[in-house]
Amino acid sequence: MADNSQVYEYSVEDLKRVATRIRRHIIEMVYSAKSGHPGGSLSITDVLTVLYFREMRIDPQNPDDPRRDRLIMSKGHASPALYATLAVRGFFPEELLTGFRKLNSKLEGHVHRGVPGVEASTGSLGQGLGIGIGMGLAARLNNLDYHVYVILGDGEIQEGNVWESLMAGFKYRVSNVTAILDRNGVQLDGFTKDVMPVNDIKAMVEGFGWKVLEIDGHNYDQIISAIEFCKSYRDGPTFIIANTVKGKGVSYMENNPKYHGSPPANEEEYRKALSELTLEGA
């Protein structure tokens, strides 16, 4: 595999610039579509940036290479973040992002497999971890050494399917699977602690037999070292709790449940968001 990811190693400063570019796309996409989910897209952007621009073995010129690393965006409403990341990474032209949520575009409202670089269609919560485990098992059967990343939302882990899959991951010791929890504390109806608290996530997931790490999901050094640990860990599946801020980078969206599923309300909000997301400030 032509390992394009190694042609140039992104520094943390480079990665921050890339993330800002992705965040600007997210705002433009949801504002243009007059719908979509900016909050949970902005919270996972830094993790996605590290994965796609530094840690994952992928080649945008050869997106079907059987040896590629896989990422399942189980919280499929974070489609703006994934689509923008894939476009900036070179899987398809950034100009196509304007088609998001519009007829005759492949950029479906929720993550859609027809888009280059997307591994599985998602959107109904709780299903991506099982898909990731299936891919991990297939790697073992096929003697391939790829790694599978599954991005979960913290509202999403209220779904029983997630915990069923945690059992399966432990049983089959899928050390090539890493779940990353975007723990931003907010879901559609409000704060997760109010809607349906999941008591001690770290203890619970550890209780299911997974190796759990907890990091600041906006701290690049922590994201990088956690992912590198998980790639080399061989004793079982790994789970990163990434503590994040919903709506990260846009002041009025941060920690505001309203922006889980609403775009900037008007031109003023739109301009304010973009003015806060500047390349110079990164």
Binding site: G130, I131, G134, M135, G136, A138, E164, M167, K171
Partner: peptide
């Protein structure tokens, strides 16, 4: 195990891998 949702989603992942 007695976890049909896990069975179906894992099946999907295996099929996505050929």
């Amino acid at each position: 195990g007695i976890a049909e949702q896990s069975m179906v989603t894992t099946a999907a992942g295996l099929a996505l891998s050929g």
